[in-house]
Design a protein around this nucleic acid. Structure first.
Lengths: 157, 157
DNA sequence: AGGAGGTAGGTGATGTATCACCTTGAAGAC
DNA sequence: GTCTTCAAGGTGATACATCACCTACCTCCT
């Protein structure tokens, strides 16, 4: 509580480096994607989850758990995308509370066109900058941190 | 342009894992900090850059380059913090266009109280979940990616 | 049947990030 | 000196993220 809680040099470097990198990378990739195709990274995430479904549609709660987003965030995102005609909402047959989020033709076309450009951008700024060993380590690290967050949230009931 | 640009399994795992982890971690840490002390992570970054200065003040452009933020982002952030009386703006003596951003007593107190709690949270959800080797690797990786972004931005003039 | 409690989806307000555009003043060219 | 250029800071609009709160309806218990 006093200064027992300092970070050492290495930790500082890792934490501030990570924070900065993560923000810069997100901003950079988002900007490139937007220029390439008029889609934000959030748009792209939603579209690409849907395009992998046989019927190009998912229930809202399914999208939430696939993307690991906050529910409200997804709903607002979907609303904006509906108004841009990238998506549409359909009543869910199984449950009359629910709704399905479905790709429109326009949404399908947008993601089709954006995907290769986006992958190219990610490769150029991310994968080309790091080694195969770093790639695997990052994957492992990400999973460890996600588990740690999930643990803590479970303990907060 | 066709499917020469696919990611392989490892890359997919790394990229989607990283994207998710990065968002979850940011959200989680931000939420804890907000509960601990009423400060957002953005608030905290600004305050803690200032508290390290001898006079608790910096020019706007200095803050921008320390934090590596977009200029406008910082200016809006500062405006909100001024209205919450965490910061104040002072005219810059050296350059009558410029302004200095300075901690108020309240801002100084807020960061003093928040820091140990925040460091504890970061340790718990982040450092305790990963190994020392991973810490160093992440630092190296972050620097490599930041360099790669800087390169690309230099090439776009 | 009918009521309690939980699940699914949504809205509005507020805080945050980014873009296009603006004003003011510093600084070097002439 | 004055003109052009650019650095510094800022505003307003829009997209996005999160919180508190709401409604509808499904489920299951009795």
């Amino acid at each position: 509580m006093t200064d027992t809680e300092q970070f050492d040099e290495r930790e500082q470097r890792a934490w501030f480096g990570f924070l900065t990198m993560q923000e810069d990378l997100r901003r950079h990739i988002n900007r490139q994607l937007l220029e390439d195709s008029g889609l934000s990274l959030s748009d792209f995430s939603v579209l690409s989850a849907l395009v992998q479904q046989p019927d190009g549609a998912l229930r809202v709660f399914e999208l939430v758990s696939l993307l690991r987003w906050e529910r409200t965030r997804l709903i607002h995102q979907v609303s904006r995308m509906v108004s841009r005609e990238l998506l549409e909402r359909r009543p869910a047959a199984e449950d009359s509370r629910g709704s399905r989020v479905a790709l429109t033709e326009r949404g399908r076309e947008a993601v089709r066109q954006a995907t290769p450009l986006h992958l190219r951008d990610v490769r150029r700024t991310f994968f080309d900058a790091i080694s195969p060993r770093q790639i695997d380590m990052l994957a492992a690290l990400s999973e460890a941190v996600l588990d740690s967050i999930a643990d803590q949230e479970r303990n907060n009931q």
